[in-house]
Design a protein around this nucleic acid. Structure first.
Lengths: 128, 128
DNA sequence: GTCGATAGTGGACCTTGTCTAGTAGAATAC
DNA sequence: GTATTCTACTAGACAAGGTCCACTATCGAC
C-alpha cells in the first residue's frame, strides 16, 4: 500500500517556521536568504528539503508588523540588496514563550504517540 | 507583554486530529460525537478545550472517501441516529505509518527546542 | 411545550506552508 | 558582450488543518 499522498506521510505537518526564525535571529541579525538556508538544515525540513522562500519572507514581514523583528536594507557588499532582520525585545520574549509552548506541544504529541502505539500493538495481537 | 493573540501562545498549532481519530477507532467502532469527546480529553487539546465537531466530522468524511474508515448508520437506541465509524485495513496501516511520522516529527521539534533554549540562554546571559 | 443534551451538517474564515512566476544585481562562461 | 547562473526578494494562487457560527433533528426532563 502506498501512503506517499496520505497525510500520514507527514507532508502536511507544520514546520514551525516562526519559532525557528526567532531562534536563528537570536544568534544575530541575518538576511532572509540565509535564514531560508539555515531553516533547510533543520531536521523538521527533512533531507535536502528547503522551505519555500516566499513563505519565509511573508512570515518575516508579518513578524515585522507584529513588532517581533525589525529590518533594514544592506546595500554594502556584492550582489542584490539584502534586507537584514534583527530581533526586538518583544521578539526575544516571544521566543522564550515559544519554548514553553512547543514543550507542551511535544508532551501532547508524545501522549498521542503512546496511544497510537498501544492501539497498533492491540490490533496486531491475536486477541486481547 | 501579552502574547495571547500571538502564535507563540500555541493557539494555531495543529492538533493532529487525523492520527488521533485513527487511534481511537483502533479500539473499536465509535460514532462521531463520542470521538469528539475523546479527542477533547487529549493533552493536545489543553484543558477543557473541545475540538470543533464540524472539523472532526469533515475529517471523518474525508477519511471515508480515502478508504481509511467505513461508516454505517445506527438507528438503534435512543436519541438521534448515529453514524458509526470503523477502521479499515488501510486505516490500520495508515495508523502505524503515522506512528513513525509523528516520532520523526517530535525528533525535529526537539532539535528546534534545543536550538531555542540555547538561543534564549545566550540572549539572557550578560555576555558570551 | 419548551429547554437542554445528543448527533450530525454546512459555509465562511484564518493560519501555515507550498507551487509557480517574476524582478533584479553580480559573477562566470563562451 | 550577451547568455547563463547564483544571489536576493516579491507576489498571486492554492491546499490542508482548524475554528467559528449557524442550522436541523431526536429525545428526555420539567
Amino acid at each position: 500500500m502506498q501512503f506517499s499522498e496520505c497525510a500520514c506521510s507527514g507532508k502536511n505537518l507544520t514546520r514551525q517556521v516562526r519559532p525557528a526564525v526567532l531562534a536563528i535571529l537570536a544568534g544575530g541579525e541575518e538576511h532572509g536568504y540565509l535564514i531560508v538556508q539555515q531553516l533547510a538544515e533543520l531536521r523538521l525540513f527533512g533531507d535536502n528539503e528547503t522551505p519555500d522562500p516566499s513563505g519565509v519572507y511573508r512570515i518575516l514581514k508579518q513578524m515585522e508588523t507584529e513588532g517581533l523583528v525589525t529590518s533594514s536594507w544592506d546595500t554594502d557588499g556584492s550582489g542584490p540588496a539584502r534586507r537584514l532582520f534583527a530581533l526586538t525585545e518583544a521578539g526575544t520574549a516571544c521566543l522564550s514563550h515559544w519554548v514553553a509552548t512547543l514543550q507542551e506541544y511535544v508532551a501532547g504529541l508524545e501522549e498521542l504517540i503512546g496511544m497510537m502505539r498501544h492501539a497498533t500493538r492491540q490490533a496486531g495481537e491475536p486477541n486481547a
